[in-house]
Design a protein around this nucleic acid. Structure first.
Lengths: 128, 128
DNA sequence: GAAAAATTTGACTTTTACGTCAAAGTCAAT
DNA sequence: ATTGACTTTGACGTAAAAGTCAAATTTTTC
């Protein structure tokens, strides 16, 4: 079938605007096909968008996301480049591990807040 | 001793600028004491800054961070407010869990990239 | 107590990631 | 062929989170 997605189908699915997708195209993150001037999105484009949005949720900048996509598209062949890439990977790993730790600590705090709320609610009104 | 920290001590420790700390003060996140016009930071301020930076790393906005600080400073007493807060806590929890999942997936991908690099390096140059 | 270093304030600028039009083109259905 | 929905392009706008710069104070050090 090789179905095409229209731009609004995708914006609805992902809760983003057409402006956002156009922006991602301008930034070179996606390259939907065209019929005339209208963009036609393939399944591959859709998957890529999902990855872009994941990167966005994590807090990656457009430049970082572009870089990641780039590496997947054509991985470096030369040894120096490979080592450089590995260094960058290691940096990113540390950043993400820190972020994960931050998140876990914050989740803990959310638990405390919730408990405090429940306790307080029990104190003032008997009904839950 | 009840030591004071100067603004630059803190900027150096946390790798941020004085502008950032002033900005956080303008935004009502911190309230360092003053001797004349100069800011004097206490240990409590320092801890608060650490929490602000953690929030920042997670991707919280200033407004969200302010809200969190506010809840800690004076938790709501009224039942309706408490329920509202619990709802917000639940939303944040889901957001953070999603983010954690995103991070874990990305860490997995980083592993793959690293392995691919190592494989490729082994292929081309024998020396590691 | 004078010079040097640090700090403050205020105003203006920048960057990122889009939002918001407006005008024109396009396609699907009537 | 026209209506109406959708899409594109381009230009300009915006909000958040600082950065930058200059001038005035203040503090510290010798």
């Amino acid at each position: 079938m090789n179905k095409y997605y229209t731009i609004t189908e995708l914006t609805r699915e992902f809760g983003i605007s057409t402006r956002t997708l156009r922006f991602y195209e301008d930034e070179g993150l996606i390259h939907p096909e065209r019929r005339g001037r209208t963009r036609l999105f393939r399944t591959a484009d859709r998957r890529l968008i999902m990855e872009i949005l994941r990167g966005r949720r994590i807090g990656f900048t457009i430049a970082e996301i572009r870089e990641i996509i780039q590496v997947y598209k054509d991985p470096p062949g030369e040894a120096g480049q490979l080592r450089l890439l590995m260094k960058r990977v290691e940096e990113k790993r540390e950043e993400l591990q820190q972020k994960r730790k931050d998140i876990e600590e914050t989740l803990e705090e959310l638990n405390n807040v919730e408990e405090a709320c429940l306790t307080r609610l029990a104190e003032i009104g008997v009904g839950t």
